[in-house]
Amino acid sequence: MTAHHELMTTYTATVTVRLKRGVLDPEAETTKRALERLGFELESLRSADQFEVDVDADSAGEAEDRADEMAQRLLANPTIHDYDVEVAEA
């Protein structure tokens, strides 16, 4: 077990969860209006949630698979969200 652990690498999986295109984002709309009140000009604004998950894994692929399952089972709601996962060595 210990020997196995030494072969593992710590990866940071960055999971970004966004509302699907076309799903209304009232908080982003409110933020956009507040920016406009401050004098900024902008066409649109989207918000997203980002999670950084540190995992020990044998490979970047394995780390990505695990983060992907986390997104599917909890971090994102497939009814309203899309998500993507990026993995880098921590």
């Binding site: 799903v23 209304l24 984002d25 009232p26 908080e27 709309e29 409110t30 709601n77 009814t79 309203i80």
Partner: peptide, 17 residues
């Protein structure tokens, strides 16, 4: 109920925020 998949859809932020 929606989050658990007992029912379809999602209840999310009111249009008014």
């Amino acid at each position: 109920g929606c989050e658990s998949g007992l029912t379809d859809g999602a209840f999310t932020t009111n249009e008014s925020a």
